[in-house]
């Protein structure tokens, strides 16, 4: 297991986990390798690792090693 921080909370993920796994873990939705939800529709979330946005197209190729600080955001009411 490895530990990463997601939205300032420590989360344990299996070795070899990628950003797809991290997003699936947080949202509770099953994701395709390209980061789209298996149940269709749009996910509406974005990921930053250490203040740099990682586009969804690179989630699967971004393997986590532990200790990373992830921000996962979505749209909420506002403005």
């Amino acid at each position: 297991m490895l530990t990463v921080s997601i939205n300032e909370e420590d989360v344990k993920l299996p070795e070899g986990a990628t950003l797809v796994d991290a997003v699936a873990h947080l949202t509770g939705r099953e994701l395709n390798a390209d980061g789209t939800p298996v149940d269709g529709g749009r996910l509406g979330v974005a990921v930053a690792v250490g203040s740099a946005v990682v586009p969804r197209s690179r989630w699967a190729a971004t393997e986590l090693t532990g200790g990373e600080e992830l921000e996962i955001v979505t749209a909420v009411q506002g403005g």
Partner: peptide, 28 residues
């Protein structure tokens, strides 16, 4: 308009889904 905030299992993506369903474009 919508605001961008940390994803929380409580808020989920309800506003996003609603605007999509209504066919209203989103201005973050």
């Amino acid at each position: 308009t919508v605001a961008m905030r940390r994803y929380s299992p409580d808020t989920k993506t309800s506003v996003f889904s609603m605007l999509e369903r209504l066919g209203i474009d989103i201005l973050p």
